[in-house]
């Protein structure tokens, strides 16, 4: 009977491991919940257009990751995107007039928020807001603008004979 008890224990461990694997697949791998604890302070930034920015995208300053995007919302009055950034507590000396822009890493890479430090003596605190922002570059708009420029550059002489 002792041997059978041991076998039962091993089977129990096996089933528990399998369930733990599924728990990890559900929680950590798929998008059901976020388990990682978040100790950073929150700062909001308003953008006209955030392009393909996703929650959990990195926030960088001078190329160094200092936090991540924790929330994306829409202000229904101004129709601006409100992005909440969580910044690690050890980077607590960001000037209040720092600017945020949405950048893309590489051609196919994901989009992230890049911060440029400002020159003020006051520093951003929890609940603060970044005033200076630059929206994501949307490729279609960029090409559209280029085409309009090219067309308006060529046509006027032809139109006026």
């Amino acid at each position: 009977m002792g041997a059978f008890k041991k076998m039962e224990l091993a089977v129990g461990v096996f089933v528990a491991l399998g369930l733990a694997a599924f728990f990890m697949l559900a929680m950590k791998v798929s998008n059901i919940a976020e388990l990682g604890e978040d100790k950073g302070y929150k700062v909001t930034a308003r953008f006209e257009n955030i392009g393909g920015l996703k929650v959990r995208a990195p926030v960088t300053l001078a190329g160094v990751r200092i936090g991540r995007v924790v929330g994306i919302g829409l202000d229904t009055h101004t129709y601006e995107a409100v992005v909440t950034l969580s910044i690690e507590p050890r980077y607590d000396r960001l000037p209040t007039d720092s600017s945020a822009s949405i950048l893309t890493s590489g051609v196919l890479g994901e989009q992230y928020v890049g911060l440029e430090p400002g020159g003020m003596d006051e520093y951003l605190k929890n609940g603060g807001a970044l005033k200076l922002t630059q929206s994501a570059l949307v490729l279609e708009k960029l090409i559209g603008r280029m085409l309009t420029n090219a067309v308006s550059g060529d046509n006027p002489p032809a139109k006026t004979p």
Binding site: F22, V29, S30, R56, R65
Partner: peptide, 20 residues
């Protein structure tokens, strides 16, 4: 590879019902 990008890209594409 950035660990945040690794997990965030994974979580934004893997769907619980479709994939898991």
């Amino acid at each position: 590879v950035d660990s945040g990008a690794f997990w965030s890209q994974m979580q934004s594409t893997v769907k619980l019902f479709d994939d898991v």
